[in-house]
Design a protein around this nucleic acid. Structure first.
Lengths: 377, 377
DNA sequence: ACTCTCCAGACAATCGTTTGTCTAGTGCAT
DNA sequence: ATGCACTAGACAAACGATTGTCTGGAGAGT
């Protein structure tokens, strides 16, 4: 029964002169529609809608898209729009994308989904993209090189018009615009959004220096983390200027691919076993700093009384940890937004895009740093 | 040299009158392709590939998809595959989806992107979906009703074959399969993945009861949070069984839409101003618990010495907070994976899907709870 | 009555695939 | 030579939209 219904409608419609009858028939189809609203088999297409209206799909499309310069009487326009509402017509973005060669979709590459740093950037990206009417695929690769290589291709196959890569070691140019957050490699067609690491290093080191710290331990990031190298080089340069000594035996290196504080715990434990004196620690990031503080506490060292700790990033947990973390804030949400903004500009054909966009860090002083105390001096 | 090779083959293959010319041309186009690899204007389509090979697109498609039951000589097959590799052919998922009416794409609705709870669920979802070859759109709505209403439609317009809604107040049935994580409303076509809140309440209350706590403060979740109601009702029920009194003046209510510990801070401050005696607090979640602990500490109360605190969720920060949190773990990653698994089964036509999937909580005892001390007793 | 001009909308091509059907040619047995 | 069965691949029709071009008819002007 039901399947034949549209056929009837179609017949009447095609008849031409009996357009008025059609109005009556459409009453029936309303009943059918009631059912559709509850359990629609197929979404209504432009063709179905056109058949129902006794028009051709093209005309319906013109009306619904408000294409200018087409003469279509107001009455028809309203009839079309009413029908679209009634059938809850939703144009297939797939079909439209195929035709217009625009998908309003981008791909986001990210190492992990459940991590403080990455998700803060993601949220900036998401905010801007959604606001501009774009959707995005996210793909997480856990730093696996084959996935880093494969996913961009897949994303492009799905119509991504651009790609944002967060903390991802891209190897080569892609056929679409790319913006890399925390990317440092210079690749043609890739815009890097980075922190001003030089400034960041100054903020951290000056702060500790002013508090009287002279024996500072340093934690380097994992080799696969995009920022590790730059951050370290900046620290080395600034330390030299400030005449702060970087002692190899007080330099520890993160290795594990973790996004929990467990990351920083064991390396600090090892550092402590060396029994070298240090009054401050600059951590690679906040997550590791939290693990470091736990390791210090487990060794009966108080933060900041015995050891001051500076974190990096200012993730949400930083402010509420105990002790709360002094840290170098990266404006992660803003960086995500900027990345998205730049990408969309490039997608929209903006040619004079920047190769690099450096954002300023900020020193957030909280409880985990203090002047060198008598106890540790 | 090498680039012209396929041209030669083409000549032989085509057999047509002008095939040789064509072959020569295709040699040129290989050179052009070298450029394309660096800066491709358009990705190569099946048609381009077919023209190059002197075949029709259909045949190329048949080869690349290994369609069985088609007689195509091995030699041709290899020729096709070689060309595909050479041109780095990537089929347009868009076009394929349109034709096959399968997109291998789902939509994920989530309140926030940068939150511990949601992202842990997301990571489970992402793991399973990617593993199964699906991609997903994520859309965040910040609990705004109009977006909760609109996004599912947009996602379906983009071809989402199913939708996973995390902590999202869906109002009605959709035309595609839906799985709701932490959904409690019974909606036709929606599978709810929920924690066994009854069991969770037992674990939390028994634990505190066994530690000797009798004056327990309770924190209720925000009205818009899907779990709030169920969790509270379970607590009330279990408290009655255990003869634990729930005093209105010791019951606080979260209101703000935050995902930072700031969430729990002010409400606990207010509670403290009432100067009512309590020795334990059951928090709505870990994030709020961290804020609560901060508020207690700021009031010179020690956790767990003066007040024991039980969290909920076991987000990553829980284990590394100071003091580390005793909490009711939700297997968030697993819940995400289950949600994805169930959704894919339903998409693949599995009819006998469960209406609800309850997962067991786990009590994780850490530092934030302790027996009632002399000091607080 | 004739042409001219619009109007309202149809028609058809297209985007890049997939897939059912059709056919020219070949080889083989009769 | 005839018929038959295959082979290798072409052809065409979708999928659901967009968009440039075309046309039948109504109305206006002369």
């Amino acid at each position: 029964m039901q399947p034949s219904q549209p056929g009837v409608i179609l017949k009447a419609a095609k008849g031409g002169p009996d357009a008025s009858r059609l109005g009556a028939k459409s009453g029936d189809s309303m009943v059918q529609n009631k059912k559709d609203q509850k359990r629609s088999d197929k979404p209504v297409s432009l063709k179905i809608l056109a058949d129902y209206l006794g028009l051709c799909p093209a005309t319906v499309s013109l009306v619904l898209n408000n294409v200018p310069g087409r003469s279509i009487p107001q009455e028809t326009r309203e009839r079309v729009r009413a029908a679209a509402r009634k059938f809850n017509y939703q144009p297939s973005l797939l079909a439209r994308s195929l035709r217009k060669q625009r998908t309003f979709t981008v791909g986001v590459l990210v190492p992990e989904l459940s991590d403080g740093y990455h998700t803060m950037v993601m949220s900036g990206i998401g905010d801007h993209l959604m606001q501009e009417g774009y959707f995005y695929f996210s793909a997480h690769h856990r730093h696996k090189p084959d996935l880093v290589e494969e996913y961009p291709r897949l994303l492009m196959g799905r119509g991504a018009e651009g790609i944002i890569a967060i903390d991802t070691a891209l190897e080569h140019e892609l056929a679409v615009p790319v913006v890399a957050v925390a990317g440092h490699k210079k690749i043609s067609g890739v815009t890097n959004v980075v922190l001003d690491h030089r400034h960041a290093a100054e903020l951290a080191l000056r702060h500790l220096h002013q508090l009287g710290h002279r024996h500072i331990a340093f934690m380097r990031g994992q080799p696969f983390s995009s920022d590790s190298d730059h951050r370290w080089r900046s620290i080395v340069a600034v330390a030299r200027e400030l005449n702060i000594e970087i002692r190899p035996e007080l330099t520890i290196q993160l290795e594990k691919d973790l996004t929990s504080p467990e990351l920083g715990y064991p390396v600090v434990q090892q550092l402590l076993q060396l029994k070298r004196r240090f009054t401050a620690l600059i951590s690679f990031n906040d997550i590791a700093a939290i693990g470091a503080i736990r390791a210090l506490r487990d060794a009966n060292l108080l933060v900041p009384d015995d050891v001051s700790v500076v974190g990096f990033d200012d993730i949400k947990a930083a402010a509420y940890h105990n002790p709360s973390l002094t840290t170098i804030r990266q404006p992660l949400h803003d960086m995500g937004q900027s990345a998205a903004r730049i990408l969309l500009q490039r997608i929209q054909g903006f040619k004079d895009y920047p190769k690099e966009c450096a954002v300023p860090p900020e020193l957030i002083i909280r409880e985990s740093t203090a002047p060198v105390s008598g106890r540790s001096r």
